[in-house]
Amino acid sequence: MSGDLPDYFFRVRENGAFVFRVDSENRQRRIEMDQIAVVNIRNGDIKPHGDRQLSDTDLGAIQDWMQDRRQVLAEREMDDIHRAVDYLNMTAHWAQSRATEAQLEDVTDDLLMAMHDLRTVLVRKKAERMNIT
């Protein structure tokens, strides 16, 4: 492990993170992590843990992390969408070239409904964009 530890550690969870202050400057030279806050990425809430008062430095580090985390999540979301396009293409190839009658029977209705729903949303959003510009 590197000798330079960060001042804060963010234990990621689905909606944000638990925030810990990292301390290795103690007599035992052990790494101690003291929870100082809970962060919610979706609504931007920063809740101090227990009776804690967060310093401006704490809040700044948390806000920087939240901004970086939102960017990472947005990039991942777009990557997932691009992968979905690939999966749709691979699914079309599978259905045309390798799928058995039983396999097609198993997935056709679900795929058609999902694709119909997606198409409806995309067409509506496209129409909205065309009316705006």
Rank of each mutant, 00 (worst) to 15 (best):
V38C: 07
K125W: 00
E75T: 11
L118D: 01
S97M: 11
K126V: 11
I31D: 03
R13Y: 12
E32T: 14
M1W: 09
G16D: 02
L59M: 12
M78R: 15
R98C: 07
D109N: 10
T100C: 01
A61S: 05
Q71R: 13
M66A: 00
N15R: 01
R129W: 08
L104H: 09
T120R: 10
R21S: 01
V121S: 07
V39R: 03
K126N: 12
R69W: 10
M115L: 14
L112Q: 08
D80P: 04
S24T: 09
M66Q: 09
R27M: 04
Q71Y: 11
N43R: 05
W94F: 15
R52V: 12
N89A: 13
N89T: 12
E101Y: 12
E101P: 10
Q28C: 00
H82T: 03
T108N: 02
V72P: 05
D4L: 12
R29T: 08
A127H: 02
R29E: 09
P48K: 05
I41G: 08
V39Y: 04
A17W: 00
D34H: 03
Q28D: 11
H116N: 11
Q96E: 06
L73Q: 14
T57I: 11
S55H: 09
P6N: 10
G44A: 06
I132F: 04
V39W: 00
S97A: 05
I41V: 13
P6K: 10
D86Q: 15
I41C: 02
G44M: 04
A84V: 07
I81D: 04
Q71M: 07
D23C: 09
T120Q: 14
L122T: 12
A37S: 03
E77S: 07
R29V: 03
L88H: 12
D110E: 13
D56W: 06
N131A: 13
R27W: 03
R27Y: 02
Q63E: 13
L88M: 14
L59Q: 07
T120E: 10
L122V: 08
A17L: 00
V22E: 01
E32S: 01
R69I: 13
G16I: 09
D117I: 09
A95Q: 06
R69Q: 15
T57C: 03
V85K: 11
G3A: 08
T133N: 06
A61R: 01
S55N: 05
D109I: 09
A102K: 02
R52L: 10
V38R: 00
D51P: 00
R98S: 02
R70K: 15
L54W: 00
K47H: 11
D109C: 02
N15C: 06
E32G: 03
Y87F: 06
L122P: 00
R69V: 10
D79F: 04
P6F: 04
W65R: 02
A114C: 07
A74L: 01
A74H: 05
E75Q: 14
E75V: 11
W65V: 07
R119A: 11
N131R: 10
Q71E: 14
M115V: 11
A84D: 11
Y87L: 07
Q53I: 15
R13A: 12
L5N: 05
R124M: 14
L104G: 08
V123Q: 12
